[in-house]
Amino acid sequence: MGHTARVSAFVWISAGSLAAWLWLLLCQGFFWRTDVRLPPRRDLDDWPSVCVVVPARDEAAVLAASLPSLLAQDYPGRAEVFLVDDGSTDGTGELARDLARRHGGLPLTVGSPGEPPAGWTGKLWAVRHGIALARAREPEFLLLTDADIAHAPDSLRTLVAAARTGGFDAVSQMARLRVASGWERLVVPAFVYFFAQLYPFRRIGRRGSRTAAAAGGCVLLRAETAERARIPDAIRHAVIDDVALARAVKQGGGHIWLGLADRVDSVRPYPRLADLWRMVSRSAYAQLRHNPLLLAGTVAGLALVYLVPPAALVLGLAAGSWATAVCGGLAWLVMTGTYTPMVRYYGQPLWLAPLLPFTALLYLLMTVDSAVQHYRGRGAAWKGRTYARPDTVADEG
């Protein structure tokens, strides 16, 4: 009787996992497809003015690979770059000036806002200072981009043309992250895959949809939209600032778009697992609103969706329960199939796709570690600053 009950429980759990994957495959905005990209660039009759705002803190190691790409933008209208040195100790500001002298291109202004006051994250305080400097130029658009992001020469033209022709208030591209080390190949494509699963790109761009997200490394924003939505003041304490920005724009009636980038790349290396672990864990619990119940639900959900399929296949075969094995195997097959487009997008070998359960286990542990660090009072730590109790995007007013 006990053995039969255990087998029956395995069957139901594996069937639940398969049902979850069928729902994700068909009903979650086709999140697994990687064809949400900016349309081919169109020429405009008149090109609006744009100010590029780059918050930078201790970015000397990557700035030489990113800032020249912004200065070299082939943009027909008026454009200039404002790099905000957020209390760097590695000479970021002086390096930026030197790169501008050597490379030329768009005008560069380097500013420094000082330490952020209470209630502000350092990045958003720097963004606020950069937007304030830019307002004197009265731009139509602001490009908010991180200091580790390299842009193709026509990136700004393509973003502005898409915003103008599509009637978007914010256009954001998920920069292609670096995948050079073994750990990057294993973890990075899954990072983008999980993000798209939470925030399906097709739903984000649909008018009337409540789904809102952006990729903070590359956000083109109408200046009047930023002012109307009180960005960044309204989201000043958000650790996950890109999602908070998108929600603020959408709540104000704005139309946003998010997709994968073709020629916008992150040059920041994450060669070791520890580097990737910090990247994920610093904000994972904030994403869950620092709610223990949401954490428990997330852990259970990750286990059911990602860990049960391979376990059910192995245990089902071992116990002679073909129903368990078939449900587990089919769920793992669907999982692998939905992950394959992202693996291809990153140019990685397809044998990595079936390893997604292992990567999901790492993300589960990173999420738990994020909660542990929060309750130890360490909160979200980044670039020498610790935000002990960062608020979540759901709390933005």
Rank of each mutant, 00 (worst) to 15 (best):
A5M: 13
W12V: 13
I13W: 06
G16S: 14
G16W: 10
A19P: 08
A19S: 13
L25C: 09
L25E: 09
F30G: 02
W32T: 05
W32S: 08
R33C: 07
D35N: 13
V36M: 11
V36W: 10
L38Q: 05
W47Y: 12
A56T: 07
D58T: 08
E59K: 11
A60P: 05
A64G: 13
A65E: 13
S66D: 05
V81A: 05
D86E: 14
G91I: 10
G91E: 13
T92G: 04
L95K: 08
A96M: 00
D98M: 11
A100V: 08
A100N: 03
G105K: 06
G105Y: 05
L106K: 04
P107H: 03
L108T: 12
S112M: 03
G114R: 04
P116H: 13
A118I: 01
G122W: 05
I131Q: 12
L133W: 10
P139M: 11
L142C: 07
I149E: 01
L159K: 02
T165V: 10
G167P: 03
G167H: 02
D169K: 01
Q173W: 01
Q173E: 12
V179W: 01
G182R: 12
G182V: 08
E184R: 11
E184T: 06
L186R: 07
Y199K: 06
F201K: 06
S209G: 01
R210P: 08
A212R: 09
E227F: 02
R230V: 01
R230T: 03
I231Y: 11
P232D: 05
A234R: 15
A234F: 05
I235V: 15
H237M: 07
A246E: 12
A246M: 09
V249H: 07
G254P: 04
W257Q: 03
L258N: 00
V264P: 01
S266G: 09
S266E: 10
D275K: 12
D275A: 14
S283L: 02
A284S: 14
L288D: 09
H290Q: 00
L293F: 15
L294H: 12
A303I: 13
V305T: 11
A312C: 04
L313T: 13
A319L: 15
W322N: 00
T324S: 10
T324A: 11
A325E: 03
W332R: 03
W332G: 06
T340A: 14
T340M: 15
Y345V: 06
G347S: 00
G347A: 00
L352A: 04
A353C: 12
L355A: 09
P357W: 00
Y363L: 08
M366W: 15
V368C: 11
G379S: 00
R389C: 03
P390W: 00
E396N: 15
